[in-house]
Amino acid sequence: MTSTSSSDNDRGCLRILLAVPLVLLTLVAVSCCWVALTIRPSGSWDDDAYAGVALACVLAIGAAGAVVGVWLLPSVRRVMGWWWVGPAVVSGVVSVIWYVAVG
C-alpha cells in the first residue's frame, strides 16, 4: 500500500494555479506578435500602421518579459519547467527582430 504525500498533491494544485497567469501572458505575447507580423503598411507614409506594429511589438515583448519574470521566481521554477516559457520567449524574440526590421 502506497500513500501520496500532501506535498505531491499540493504540487499539482500549485502547477495549475501558476499555469493560469503564464498561459494568459503567453497568449497575449503570441497574439501581439501575430498582430505585429500581419499588419502591412500601405507605404512609407503610413505612420499609423507603423505605430500599430511598434505597439504590438512592445506589448509582445512586455508580456514575454512578464512570463520570464514570473517564471524566474524560485517557487515557480521549482514547479514549472522551462518549456512553459518557450513560446513566450520565442514570440518576444520574433517581436524584437520585427521591431528592429520595421522600425
Rank of each mutant, 00 (worst) to 15 (best):
V20L: 14
A64E: 08
T38S: 15
D47G: 15
V68G: 05
A56T: 11
S75A: 12
V35K: 15
S3K: 10
M80D: 05
V94E: 00
A54Q: 13
D47T: 15
A63W: 04
V94A: 04
V68W: 07
L59T: 14
A29S: 13
L17W: 12
P41K: 14
M1E: 03
R78N: 13
G69P: 12
G86V: 08
V70A: 06
A49R: 08
S31N: 14
V23M: 13
I39G: 07
G69W: 03
S75L: 14
A66W: 07
W98N: 13
R11W: 00
G81D: 07
W45Y: 15
S3T: 09
W34G: 13
L24G: 09
V94H: 02
V96R: 06
A49E: 03
V76C: 05
C33W: 00
L22H: 09
V85H: 03
A29R: 01
G65I: 11
A36K: 05
S3A: 05
W82E: 00
T38I: 06
V94C: 01
S5Y: 05
C13H: 08
L73S: 15
P21W: 00
T26G: 15
Y50A: 07
A60Y: 11
R11V: 00
P74G: 09
V90N: 05
P21K: 06
V20D: 14
P87T: 07
M80R: 03
A56F: 03
M1C: 00
V70M: 13
S31V: 15
V76F: 01
V30A: 15
C57A: 14
T4E: 00
W84R: 00
